[in-house]
Amino acid sequence: MKTRTCLRVNGTQYEVPPSFSGRRLLDYLRSALGLVGTKEGCGEGDCGACTVLVDGTPMCSCLLLTGVLDGREVTTIEGLPEAFLSQFAAICTEYGAVQCGYCTPGIAVMAAWLRDGGNDMNDEPVSKLFEGNLCRCTGYQQLIEALTALS
């Protein structure tokens, strides 16, 4: 029976303490690694605030058991390139696409995934691609405009 879990987070290799292997990736990132940029919203996979990339694919970290991620590469908001984050912040400011900011890390991770060509269904409109990221402040229009400008 395998008990050790090793994974990379933002380029650094970690061995997961046994006490976290049966907990959610979200808990491991926030409590064990102190990477609190990833937010917990609904905890049920609806809101997308906890979105991270696993081997380059966006997933909800509240629905992943840390122990199953042996050998995988996780990227959180903290691991996105500085240049991208500056550009993302500038565009969000320009379009008024941020208010309380709670959903923003998840949206930034999705935007980085799209920018890196992660989406091969490229006929999908921005509003469809961000269907899994809820925002209760902006009313979405500003977000859609900002994300369209970014892509």
């Binding site: 996979g45 997308g48 979105t51 694919t57 966006p58 997933m59 909800c60 629905l63 992943l64 999705m110 691609l129 961000f130 269907e131 899994g132 990221n133």
Partner: peptide
């Protein structure tokens, strides 16, 4: 079903 993130999982 669900969203981009959910369909990946």
């Amino acid at each position: 079903v669900g969203s981009v993130q959910l369909r990946n999982q």
